[in-house]
Structures are given as C-alpha cells and as structure tokens.
C-alpha cells in the first residue's frame, strides 16, 4: 500500500566537493535518480531522515576509455550509457543488460551507481560488471578507495559503502577476443524484473577453455560469479560432456529462493539451461563441436 512520503531533511549538492562535504556528517541518504529510493519511501521500505540530492552533479556523467579500461561516472544515466557507442563496442554485456532494463523514461533518470548501490539481487547492471572484474571508486571528503565489485555487494540491499562515501566512478577493464553472451529471463519481454539473469564471457584456445567467467543475478542474496563452474571448466577441453558436468556444479555457487516471481526449483533449472546455452554457443563461436 502507498503511504504518505515521510518528512525528511533535504539538501541539494551543486558539485562533488559540496556533496562529499555534506556526507561527512553521516546518515545522509543519496538521491541519484530516485527511481528506487522514492518508490521505496512510498511503500515504506525505506524512511531516511536526511536526503542528499546529487542529481545535478554533471561532473559525474561521463564515459572515458583509457589504457584498455573504461571509466564510467557514477551519475551517468542508464539511457546515456545505452546510447554511448564506446559502451556498446567495448562493453557489450553492459550495453545488452541496460537495453533490457526498465523503460526509456526510467532509464533517462536512473543512474548506474544507483543501480549498483541499491544492491538488489536482481540488479541488472551487476552481472556484466562482475564479468568485467569492474572496480568501484568510493570517495569521501578524506579521499578515495577502490574496491572490486565482487567485494562491494554484501547481501540483499547491503554493500560495502559507508555513509560518508559516494560511488564516484566505475572502472571497467574491457575483454578482447572473448565470446560474450547476456540473457535476461523475465516474465515478459520488456519492463520486467529478472527471474534469472546471466552474463558469460569465455575464451577457447586450441580446444581448451583458457578463461571462463560466469555471473548470475536473482539466484542468490546478491549478484554472484559462478566460480565453481568457472574453475570446473578452465583448462578443460571444450566439449558437451565437460560443459554438462560443470553446469551441474552451479548449485555450489547459487542459493535461489522461491518468491512471487518463481520457485527456487525453477530458478535452478533455468540457470542450468541458460549456462548450457551460453557455453555451447561459445564453443561454436570458437569453431568447436556442433553442441
């Protein structure tokens, strides 16, 4: 049910310096796009007492390529990233994931940092960033620190960010010569939360998996890498039986729940089906067996 928006203290930062200065006081909730926060407040899931509006921080909206890496400003709107040719070319998984997210109206307001910091187990930008081994730059008035994204997510709506910090930038190494595959399984073809989302990147050299990266959404308390499956495959011959054997091990990487969207049992089945599809396609991409 909808509730009256609770009263709160409000400040709007005009630049990053000002924002970090306010955050120093602690207990400020950041409003970046507001597409998650405001809704959460209306349904009573969050009721922050102090809100810092950073929607005007133009300096946090950028995409830069440097030295084999992409640097994305945390305040970049999802639609800006979707329309960015560099993102599309260098980070195809992220581009595909954003394409499937929400609607044009929401993508025009929602930010990439907001999607990450909201830390939903279903956060759509998370699996691609996990695949790329992205790092997040967390800044406060006393300086910045950088954290691998896999260490940033702690649990449902829990992250490693402190209340003094702001997610300023995401550093994303690009992958060359990889087969990259993304699939969002929702309950319809647009404007939906994922039941399972999967991102896969892999490389096969001389018929051997030289690298395999698998990230999954909505099947664990946080977006996860399927390290067990990855390790089962790395160094192995790329063939159907190896893939089928390895995919079964995904149970060690994920712990799906049953909810209004799907049962845990279905999520297991779907995850395995998606991983097999991705791995078979990858094998085919590198000229492997017909699957």
């Amino acid at each position: 049910m909808y509730y009256k928006l609770p009263e709160f203290e409000y400040k709007r930062a005009e630049n990053l310096h000002q924002a970090l200065d306010v955050l120093k006081e602690g207990d400020w909730k950041i409003l970046a796009g507001g597409t998650d926060l405001i809704l959460d407040m209306k349904i009573g899931r969050q009721s922050p007492k102090k809100i810092l509006d950073i929607t005007r921080l133009g300096e946090l909206r950028y995409v830069r390529a440097y030295n084999g890496k992409m640097f994305i400003g945390g305040g970049s709107r999802l639609q800006e990233l979707l329309e960015n040719a560099l993102v599309k070319e260098k980070l195809p998984l992220l581009s595909s994931a954003i394409y499937e997210m929400a609607s044009w109206q929401i993508r025009n307001v929602a930010t990439i940092a907001g999607n990450i910091c909201n830390a939903s187990p279903a956060a759509d930008s998370a699996p691609p960033l996990l695949i790329y081994d992205a790092k997040v730059k967390l800044s406060s008035s006393s300086g910045s620190r950088t954290l691998p994204i896999s260490e940033f997510f702690l649990g449902p709506r829990k992250t490693a960010i402190s209340s003094y910090e702001l997610l300023e930038e995401i550093e994303v190494p690009t992958l060359d010569g990889y087969f990259q595959w993304y699939y969002k399984l929702g309950r319809r073809h647009a404007f939906t939360l994922s039941v399972v989302s999967a991102a896969v990147a892999l490389k096969i050299e001389n018929g051997i998996f030289s690298d395999v990266r698998i990230a999954l959404g909505s099947v664990a308390p946080k977006p996860v890498r399927a390290y067990t499956v990855e390790n089962e495959l790395k160094g192995k011959e790329a063939n159907v039986s190896e893939i089928e054997r390895a995919v079964e091990k995904v149970a060690e990487d994920i712990s799906p729940i049953s909810d209004v969207r799907a049962s845990a049992e279905y999520r297991f089945k779907a995850t395995k089906a998606l991983l097999k599809e991705a791995l078979f396609k990858g094998m085919k991409y590198f000229g492997g067996g017909s699957g």
Binding site: R187, R188, H189, A190, F191, T192, L193, V260, R261
Partner: peptide, 10 residues
Amino acid sequence: TDYVIPTSMD
C-alpha cells in the same frame, strides 16, 4: 512489478 500484463514487446 509482480502482476504481469503483456507489453507491446510481447
């Protein structure tokens, strides 16, 4: 969010 009607994409 969770009562799922079809969209034009469906």
